[in-house]
Structures are given as C-alpha cells and as structure tokens.
Design a protein around this nucleic acid. Sequence first.
DNA 1: GGGAAAGTGGGGATAAGTGGGGAATATTGT
DNA 2: ACAATATTCCCCACTTATCCCCACTTTCCC
Lengths: 142, 142
Amino acid sequence: MFLGRFDHVLDDKGRLAIPARFRAGLQDGMVITRGTDRCLYLFPVSTWTGIASRLDALPMGDPNARNLRRAAFAAAEPADLDKQGRVVLSERLRKYGGLESTVAVVGMNSYIEVWDLPAWEALEAQVEEQGDVIASHMSGQF
Amino acid sequence: MFLGRFDHVLDDKGRLAIPARFRAGLQDGMVITRGTDRCLYLFPVSTWTGIASRLDALPMGDPNARNLRRAAFAAAEPADLDKQGRVVLSERLRKYGGLESTVAVVGMNSYIEVWDLPAWEALEAQVEEQGDVIASHMSGQF
DNA sequence: GGGAAAGTGGGGATAAGTGGGGAATATTGT
DNA sequence: ACAATATTCCCCACTTATCCCCACTTTCCC
C-alpha cells in the first residue's frame, strides 16, 4: 500500500521520481489525473479500470453526465515508470497542480497524491490547527 | 484504451493527425460520425460493428426508429490512417463539428471525440464551474 | 566505513506533428 | 470524345518534443 510523504524535485523536463517504496504497485502502469483541491491523483491501472467502468456507466442522455465524463477522461493520462523509476508529468497536469519545482508525493493507501510543496505545507498547517477534528474521527477505531 | 486530450491542427486539406497513442486501436480502420453536442465520434471498426448491429435491430415498424437508423448510417463515414497516422475529415463532418483550424482530440476510453478547440475549452470551463463534481463522482470509488 | 540503492541531471537517438509537392484518379465543360 | 480543371492519395521533408540511456551525488543500510 501507499503510505508516507516524500518531497521530490521536478526537473525541467517535467519528470518526477516516484518513491522507491511506491514503485512495485505501479509496475503495470498508472493513470495520472486531476484531483480535488489542485492536487494530482496517481492510480495503479488496476484501480483506474474500476473508476473508468463506473464513468462509462454514466447515463449518456444527461448533458451534465456527458460533460462530466468528458472532463474526467480528458484529464486522465496513462503513464509508465522509466528505468529510473520516474514518470513524466505533462505540461497540462503540472499547470493544474501548480507544480513548480519541489513537490510532495503522498501515499493515500490505495492511490497517490502529488502536491506543490508550499500548498501541501499550508494544508498541513491548517489540518494541525484542527487536531481535535481528526482525533474525533479516529476515536474508537483501534 | 483512449485517454487524455491532445490539441492538433487541421490542415487545409482537412487532415487530422491522430495522437500516436491512439493509433494502435485504429489500425484496422475506423468509422467517423456525428456525436452529441457538435463533436465528432471516432470509433474503431470493431466497436462500430456492435453499434451497427444494434441499429439494424431497431424495429422498422416505428417511424422514429426508421429515421434514427437513416440518420445514423448516413452520417457515418469509414476512414483509415495514412502512413503518417492521419485521417481526412470530410467537408461535411468538419462543418458539423464547426472545426476551423485547431481541434481537441479527446480519448473517451472506448472511442474518441473531436472538438473545435474553442468549443472544447468552453465545455471545460463550464464543468469547472460546477466545482469538484468530477471528484465527488470519483470519491468513494477507490 | 563500504556498498548498494535512491534521487537527480543531462545528452543523443528516435518518433511525433505538421506542411507541401507531385502522380494518379475523378469531374467538368466544350 | 477529349481536353482542362479539380480532387484524392501517397510520399518526402522539416521542426520539435519525447524517449532511452548513461552518469553523478547523496542517502540509507549492513
């Protein structure tokens, strides 16, 4: 599973080194797409196919559903690890995520999120202020 | 399958370069036809035959079904990739899609859509206005 | 401390996207 | 029917981006 946060550098070719611990789960390829709050999602293909089939099931008679489906598929980009364990993030994805140079690669258990580092740190600080909320969500679960 | 968005130029001969990643799925030929919302659909032949047989199965006693069938078959045009991986879009199809010079070629998983770029961008902006609709549709799915 | 692996950087070969010329085929007009 | 014009298709050429490989530095681990 994908756990932990890693700060990596995006080079001028748009390449991002995937943390070594995450690579095994991405050997068969991955799909990178836009996530919530200006981050990027990075799914193993096996996970993506499930998402894709649910998108395919959307009713084509509904205009909103049609456009949602279009946006979702258009934003998705297949990718593979190179021999050094990196992926190329397209110009478009980088722009969406506001990725400049240093990014946070965050394991989200079943998938991976990629954040511009300043944005991630701001989010982290914000969450820290709300410590009680998190604690209340976790109580009685372990 | 077909994923991602690519901005390509339509030359004065009406030729459109198919993104290299899409070509493998179209080697055996394709069928281009009118899509919803003024875009073009581009199906691999194998996918098209399924659609065609469903159209064939429509009840010929029903006037609506008859006309749907007529419109669907009349709009469809077979095409092949040339040696450079391009297809020629007929005058009629270009006019229907309002294709001027730059178009968006969008992978829709099982088929491909072709949009006039300004129209596509308008659609994208519209979807974005609806907030994280995409994310909410994907959330709870992985 | 030594070895291996991880993260980072850069250069060269190859393919992708685009434009244009010319031969073969079809279309039009006299 | 024949010539003139237009259309389609195939091939070649250029520019830019992408991919693949090699190499260096730092960190981690034994």
